[in-house]
Amino acid sequence: MARHLQDTIYKYVTMCLSGVALALIFIIIGVLIDSSYPALVVYGSKFFTSITWNAELTGSICYTSGIAHMCGATFGVLVYLTGTLLSSGIALLIGAPAAVGLAIVLAEIAPRRLASPISFVMELMAGIPSVIYGFWGILVLVPYLKSTLEVGLSHSLSSVPIFSGAVFSAGLLASGLILALMITPIIASISRDAMRQTPEGLKEAGRALGLTDWEITYKVVLPYARTSIIGSIALGLGRALGETMAVALVCGGASNFLPKTFFYPINTMAAFIVFQLDAAFTDPSGMSISVLAEMALLLMAITMIVNVVARLLVRRGFVSRPENLIQV
């Protein structure tokens, strides 16, 4: 009897602990909604349509519906929302094909003896801290873009509007490339694992019909792993949307204008929250804190939708080893 009681207690205590995951999500969303309420009341939909961010930190305090804010301050998320979406979009355009290519190399082309060290490098790629990617971006990628790639693009494609005009040192293209690198290991490792699960019999049937290796990959392996690959790309998108430090270092820190070419400086929601650390303290009305909470809430909503879709697509089954979990 005492034993039975012990088991029951153990069960319910661990049940509460596992429920912490649920509680945390609700706490995060609850806190963000609660904190962004003043901004929602004062600025309403202007928050989503304005491209100007001007906190008027030195002005005087006005009141709207009893809520304190700086007179004449404008807060528009549009520049940062655009930056987030565009940089992640570029990251997907470049990163997803490259990552799926890497996955095909690992699962289908490279011999096992070569595939495992490459896999290790790829796993390391997932483990390198975001801020180090950013630092590398400043030291290597941005100078390269400025001196070579962007100049080349703007010379050879000057008739295409998005590739023409002045070349900046850090901006949209640099952010997109860095993000592409960072999402590659996520997409590649999940896609590789999914491709490796293709039943050997299906591939052998293809071989017996005289298909070449690429035809087997294209007509048998890729269709078999398609859902998981799309899911992994969605997971990569979720990561890119919320990526902070790397982008903060190479985005160029734009504010109050929208990018017109691939070379423009941009800013993303995640990076901007980092840059606004000081404003959170220096705004005498405290409105900046509320507006940033609203921005965080918007980012949270976007990444959550993307991640939920991704989770539904990536089949649960093949995440079976603890060390594979980390990229997912």
Binding site: I25, L241, G242, T244, L299, M300, T303, N307, V328
Partner: peptide, 10 residues
């Protein structure tokens, strides 16, 4: 899984 996907800045 959703919690693991929340951006760390948030």
């Amino acid at each position: 899984d959703v919690l693991a996907g929340v951006p760390s800045i948030i």
